Amino acid sequence: MTSSNAPTCDVRDCGSPAAPGAPFALCPGHLALAADWVGQQLGVENVLPSPCVACGARLGIRYPSGWLCAVCEWVYGTSPDEDLPRPRVDVVYYIRFKDRMKIGTTSNLRQRMSQLWHEELLAIEPGGRDRERARHSQFSAQRLESSEWFSLSPELLAHVDTLRRGIDDPWALYARWLSEAIAARA
């Protein structure tokens, strides 16, 4: 039994009580119909059935026609063309070993990190040899002889902090750049 002051559903001839707290005076049934309609138009964010093959993300957007990865927008269920070479993604990396930091560049971050003795991948930024040379010049006062290794300094650490701002994991950022490169050529 409803109170005579309780709002009712705005849908013509419904007369059911409106759902309490709903942004519109609609009954639960009509709210569900509206949510289904919005989902068909805009998609529904949810967990993918399995990780995205392009970037490894778990979050997706489900449309009536299928799923898209919410991170890289890869069409779920399709796979990259195995005949194509992996796209080139040039990065400048910052790794730490004890009290020093290496600034280097690579187009295959995972392979390069497996070759270098380091304790931590601190940050990455897009760029190749030109960007690497610019960073070497920028931090030349901290450079150890003529190597790519630098003494830790407040300026260098501040630069790395700037690169890391909003980035919890440099590997996830690299995966996103790689998936974007895969998606761009598909």
Rank of each mutant, 00 (worst) to 15 (best):
L157D: 15
A175P: 00
L163S: 04
D99W: 06
L152P: 02
Q111P: 00
E120L: 13
L156T: 09
H159N: 13
H118L: 14
K102L: 09
R135V: 02
D99F: 11
A172M: 06
D90N: 09
D161I: 07
L157I: 15
R133S: 14
L116S: 07
R100Y: 01
N108G: 04
V160F: 10
R135G: 00
F97H: 13
E145S: 15
N108Y: 03
E119P: 06
G104H: 04
Y93H: 00
D130M: 12
L163D: 05
E145Y: 13
H159R: 14
E132F: 04
E132S: 03
R96F: 08
Y93W: 03
S153M: 13
S179G: 13
I124H: 02
Y94A: 05
R112P: 01
A134I: 06
I124W: 05
M113K: 02
D130W: 07
F150G: 05
L163A: 08
W117P: 03
S147Y: 10
A141M: 10
L121E: 03
A175D: 04
G127W: 07
Y93M: 02
E155V: 11
D169F: 08
A141K: 11
E155N: 14
Q115T: 12
E120P: 04
G128C: 11
W171C: 00
D169W: 07
M113V: 08
S107R: 07
I167K: 08
L178E: 00
G166L: 11
F150A: 05
G128L: 11
L121W: 12
G166R: 09
E148M: 06
V91L: 04
K102R: 11
D161A: 15
D130T: 14
K102T: 06
L144Q: 10
F139Y: 08
W177M: 03
D99M: 09
I167N: 05
Q115V: 09
K102S: 03
R131S: 08
L116R: 06
T162R: 15
T105M: 07
F97Q: 12
S107L: 05
W117Y: 11
Y94F: 15
Q142E: 14
Q142I: 02
R143M: 06
H159P: 06
P170T: 05
W171L: 05
L178T: 00
S107D: 11
S140W: 08
Q138H: 09
R96M: 06
I103W: 01
H118N: 09
T105L: 03
G166W: 08
D169I: 07
Y94I: 06
L163P: 04
G166K: 09
L157Q: 14
V92M: 02
L152H: 11
L178C: 02
I103N: 00
Y94P: 00
D169A: 08
G128Y: 10
